[in-house]
Design a protein around this nucleic acid. Structure first.
Length: 239
DNA sequence: TCATTAAATTGTT
DNA sequence: AACAATTTAATGA
């Protein structure tokens, strides 16, 4: 089920509409932006494809233009632990790109996706030349720290409804994933993989959240009606 | 553009 | 895990 590193093969230059979905381009000055755009590559990843794997040397700083990726890691026993989902607008790998160390996690496409990449050299060039870019990366690191702390709390609770609610809230984080608007394109099966629950249970949890008025279920996706309600959702599993 | 068919996704047991 | 119902996407006239 796992083909390898599609991005390194058939990569294109980004289309204008794809560039539109790259949030940090807007914080660059015209010269910086021109240079970055020239260096950007995009590639298509089929469902199951790996974007990066543990131990591989860092080649790119990656971003999701379209689709859905998941970030996970396998321990010595081969148990897979999913850290986070990566919806459109999300960029990752800055930690390893900064230090030019090998990747510490696997990133795999949950569905057919479009992934953008900026070479590590260009990434460093922007760090050396652009204040705006530095602010973006710093904010990105800070937001992600918040995400991981929240993720630990999520793992400790055993109420499925709350787990689903909090995980959804994370995916709708506008700072980290500006490409996600009112609606998040994600199937209940994909969400089940991310949260670590059965699809049936996720289906039920979503129904509860909808009844509570914080989301609306749509075919192939979800619409957020009340993000704060998702973030602070308490245990109310009357299923 | 519309009708038909296949595929994907959801709701339920 | 399996099934039926629903929605979307694809096809071709």
């Amino acid at each position: 089920m796992s083909t390898d590193l599609t991005l390194h093969q058939r990569r294109r230059t980004p289309t204008p509409s794809e560039l539109q979905g790259i949030p940090w381009l807007r914080v660059l000055k015209p010269e910086e932006r021109a240079r970055a755009v020239a260096e950007l590559k995009v590639g298509d990843a089929a469902s199951g494809d790996y974007v990066c794997r543990v131990g591989k040397p860092v080649t790119y700083w990656f971003g999701v233009v379209e689709g859905l990726l998941k970030m996970s890691s396998d321990d010595a026993q081969g148990t897979t632990m999913t850290f986070s989902g990566l919806p459109p607008g999300g960029w990752f790998g800055e930690g390893t790109a900064l230090k030019r160390e090998p990747y510490r996690y696997n990133v795999q496409a949950l569905r057919k996706s479009v992934v953008a990449g900026l070479s590590v050299d260009s990434f460093h060039w922007l760090l050396d030349h652009s204040i705006g870019f530095n602010r973006f990366v710093m904010n990105q690191l800070n937001e992600r720290l918040g995400q991981f702390i929240a993720a630990r709390e999520i793992d400790r609770m055993n109420s499925p409804d709350v787990r689903v609610a909090r995980s959804l809230a994370a995916l709708f984080n506008p700072a980290l994933y500006p490409g996600v608007g009112e609606i998040l394109r994600i199937t209940q099966q994909e969400l089940a993989y991310l949260v670590g629950l059965s699809r049936q249970r996720v289906n039920k949890a979503l129904a509860n959240l909808q009844a509570q008025g914080s989301i609306r279920i749509e075919y192939g996706g979800l619409r957020v009606l009340d993000l704060d309600a998702l973030r602070s959702s308490m245990v109310s599993s009357k299923s």
